[in-house]
Nucleic acid binder design. Structure first.
Lengths: 350, 350
DNA sequence: TTGAAAGCGTTACCAG
DNA sequence: CTGGTAACGCTTTCAA
């Protein structure tokens, strides 16, 4: 409902005169109908005479009337609000996720209540706020404890986990297949003749980090590479740099580095090329994970797994909305395959 | 209010028994007091006997009672909700802004209603939603027309513009000094002997883009560089690449490129080095603007202006809250100086 | 300090 | 199809 100047003036004058925003009673009074009639005009499929409907909408528009979402929510038990929990907004990869979620939810006429979890912010406080605001559902791209998830269940708030698996049977989730992706990557490296692997893992408490890490280690072990050195980073550029430096120090013959994220891989590439004087990929291959924007930049052309973020966020929104409409619907776990980007940061054979 | 298992069980059992969330009446009934008393317990400075207060809080905690924010807002005319409008979340620089705003607002016990403006989304729809949800205020890091701003004024919703100036006298704003920053940058380039400038500007409809662009052109003109070639990009990496290619084509002696954003500068660096075979900064200097994360990566070490995002977002939140508390307070325009990062993408003299 | 009662602006359920 | 009336869960007078 775009407003043109033509129907803005009355709004302004109504507010100027009364000092408050018009209610359905104001509309009803001026249109000479009951308040119920006004309410029905804005309901999806209410029964109302076309002529009356026309009149009411005209008056409403002249007054600049909009139903008050608070009052609607209070009585109808539906806020059309979804809480999005996201840790580490500065992560390079999350902005894309957030934009995707926002777009998908907006399309379904749902608003996003954003909770960006900094290191210091208490998740429990956030849950408290979510509860107070009666959101219809939650999408969590952040670490949630068993107990915290249980609280959502207690409160009957549907939750969809993004890129993490909840242990409970109740939590739905949308994930990118870390295991498959990481295996593709490592398999190619092995097939291309790499023999001296190092791993730059994420922090221990990261779900995706550990998943990718263990997938890589498992496959390497299967292929006879038993004790692959690993250092831990925190998904940051700096930790990627530090990681490869450490790996190179303890492994003189290092020829392949598997990083748990693009950003760490990028850091590793910079450090390897600029500080360690290594040629990437000629004498050192480096692979990442995510397929974030900078991975495609010419200076890096990272060999990585691209997550289908658009489809994943759309799926997360769809799943959540379904569970909101029908709380009895079963919690589904959707797993998307990532796409391998060959890039040029790893020496790959045919 | 972190919840321990000890006080979660009762919550669950209450909900299980009654099937609904506890209200202040439930607490009142069980505690044997009036509903008003319960309400007062959760009000900032209400008068209530300490003993009674103790009792009520105990019962409330056992029931897992939380005041319903919707009902509170409906009556008190305060939602503690702020709408954040942001265009182009994928912008590399906005995530930091969003994280900063979120942190600053959360600290003040205000929640963020996020509106991410994609190309297709209608701003007017967003304004409609904002109005329906009775947010207390708006922070806008997006393009808003005169009329749109007027609507906020009509609705008595305070707005703080982020990095853009509103023409009306009513809109407060927080900005980074593009003019000063850009002048510093260009001044240094001139002083260091650059003579053949090119500009990669932002899109015409970008406020900051035009500000930076005209600042650069003005200073260059003042210094006798009359007709500096300019190409327009869209702040993307790809457009930075295309931009420098075009500039190099029309200016064989090009020795300095002024870009309206870091991302375009990074694209320009990659193109110049990799495709055009230029040595940056030895035979071509490239400068950006923003001071976003990737600008500091070793492969780029961009010469740029770093915006004090943390202070800016804190200021935006503070200004908005002040205008919410006291609608009569004057609209302030705060201008922050950026900090020049010398980097290594430009050949700078002492 | 306390409790009763009147809203806040809607939707939902009634008779008519 | 229509209008009256009862919620929704809270804050806020106002008397006691």
């Amino acid at each position: 409902m775009p407003k043109r100047t033509a129907d803005r003036a009355p709004t302004a004058s109504f507010i100027a005169q009364s000092g408050r925003r018009p209610t359905s009673y104001d509309v009803a009074r001026i249109a000479g109908v009951s308040q119920s009639a006004v309410s029905r005009c804005f309901a999806p499929n209410a029964s109302i005479a076309p002529a009356k409907r026309e009149l009411i909408l005209k008056v409403a528009s002249e007054l600049g009337y909009r139903p008050n979402a608070l009052a609607q929510a209070l009585i109808s038990k539906r806020t059309n609000l979804v809480a999005v929990l996201i840790s580490n907004l500065t992560n390079l990869y999350y902005p894309e996720v957030l934009a995707g979620l926002s777009a998908s939810l907006t399309k379904r006429d749902v608003r996003v209540l954003l909770f960006s979890l900094g290191a210091e912010s208490e998740v429990d406080d956030v849950i408290d706020q979510i509860w107070r605001h009666s959101v219809d559902g939650v999408i969590a791209a952040a670490r949630l404890s068993e107990q915290q998830l249980e609280q959502f269940a207690d409160h009957q708030i549907p939750v969809v986990m993004y890129n993490r698996l909840a242990s409970g049977p109740n939590a739905a989730s949308v994930r990118c297949d870390s295991v498959g992706g990481e295996r593709d990557l490592v398999e190619r490296l092995i097939a291309s003749g790499h023999r001296h692997f190092g791993i730059i893992a994420g922090p221990e408490d990261s779900y995706v980090g550990e998943e990718r890490n263990s997938a890589a280690r498992t496959l390497l072990a299967e292929r006879g590479f038993g004790d692959v050195p690993m250092v831990r980073g925190d998904f940051s550029y700096a930790s990627g740099r530090a990681g490869v430096r450490e790996l190179a120090r303890i492994m003189p013959k290092l020829d392949a580095v598997v990083c748990a994220s693009d950003l760490m891989a990028i850091g590793a590439m910079d450090e390897a090329r600029i500080e360690l004087g290594r040629d990437v990929p000629k004498d050192l291959s480096i692979v990442g994970f995510d397929g974030s924007g900078p991975a495609t930049w010419e200076s890096y052309r990272l060999t990585t797994i691209r997550q289908p973020v658009g489809r994943m966020t759309a799926a997360a929104a769809a799943m959540l909305m379904e569970r909101i409409e029908d709380p009895a619907s079963p919690a589904e776990q959707r797993l998307f395959s990532g796409q391998m980007i060959e890039g040029a940061s790893a020496r790959l054979g045919a």
